[in-house]
Design a binder for these strands. Structure first.
Ligand SMILES: [Zn+2]
Ligand SMILES: [Zn+2]
Ligand SMILES: [Zn+2]
Ligand SMILES: [Zn+2]
Lengths: 138, 138
DNA sequence: TTTACAATTGAGAAAGTTTCTCAATTAGGG
DNA sequence: CCCTAATTGAGAAACTTTCTCAATTGTAAA
């Protein structure tokens, strides 16, 4: 597993540094959207002394490698989470920010229709669902 | 038309100031996503001397009144556009940032199914489609 | 294992974005 | 035409993100 990820870095001529490892581990261990500052805090628990700029740079790298995704929350803050495998969309609990992935994409089916109808050649889409999870409803 | 909008402000005890008028007009005249700075520039053409903070405040007010919506672009910058009537989703041209609205929402149909499946009571969703418009493909 | 080098890091400066403060101005009801 | 609360402009302040550079460190090759 870790070997695979290591290779993803090495194939791009990138180093698999402790800092990048730590950022990735934080995302893996937290199935939720995390702001930069929360990621920084958690990373420093694993690797004291890690700088904020490094967290920014690591996240940028992880997104380029498609190991993480940048998401957009309504309050305006950018957050990050582990990249889903395959084509998936997140359902986010607005209370606890837990993320549940789901695989049924209703967009792909209608993309072609919409392209014809609107004249816009649709390439990508961004979809997030928001709600309240079971635990938070008690 | 303008009377209606005026009333929306007055019903909330808000003033329909020249600055707010100008911000709204910029959004109305530009069927595209606009960054704060571009809005500020265009507003100053209509109303020289308008401060940046006022643009921020006006946009916040317009969003509260549901006359505008805040959107999220992949490069990270927040932008604004005129609020769509009813439930709609935007198709954004990644070249010219023109916005085409479309009304067929594929999410509402499957919300209930997903709620049962995942245990998350789905309340809202955020959907943006990206592509290349006819003009930009030439 | 050791060496060599390009990639990466931490620290702080710098740039950019958003919010806040407050005196002066103004829209709009009466 | 007043009065008053809402709003504004200007700049400071707070916050977020990027940049710079000397020092460090993974990693491939020897
Ligand atoms: Zn929850
Ligand atoms: Zn999809
Ligand atoms: Zn276009
Ligand atoms: Zn919808």
């Amino acid at each position: 597993m870790s070997k695979d990820i290591k290779n993803i870095f090495h194939k791009q001529g990138l180093k698999f540094t402790p800092q990048r490892r730590a950022v990735l581990k934080v995302l893996q261990d937290t199935q939720a959207y995390l702001s930069i500052n929360r990621i920084h805090t958690k990373v420093k628990e694993l690797l004291p002394g890690t700088g904020l700029a490094t967290v920014y740079r690591s996240l940028e790298t992880l997104v380029e490698l498609e190991l993480a995704v940048k998401v957009h929350l309504e309050d305006g803050c950018h957050s990050y989470t582990l990249a889903p495998e395959g084509h998936r969309h997140p359902i986010v609990c607005t209370d606890c920010s837990r993320v549940i992935e789901y695989t049924e994409c209703p967009i792909q089916d209608i993309s072609k229709k919409l392209s014809k109808k609107t004249g816009v050649l649709i390439k990508t889409h961004f979809l997030q669902l928001f709600g309240k999870c079971e635990e938070c409803r008690n």
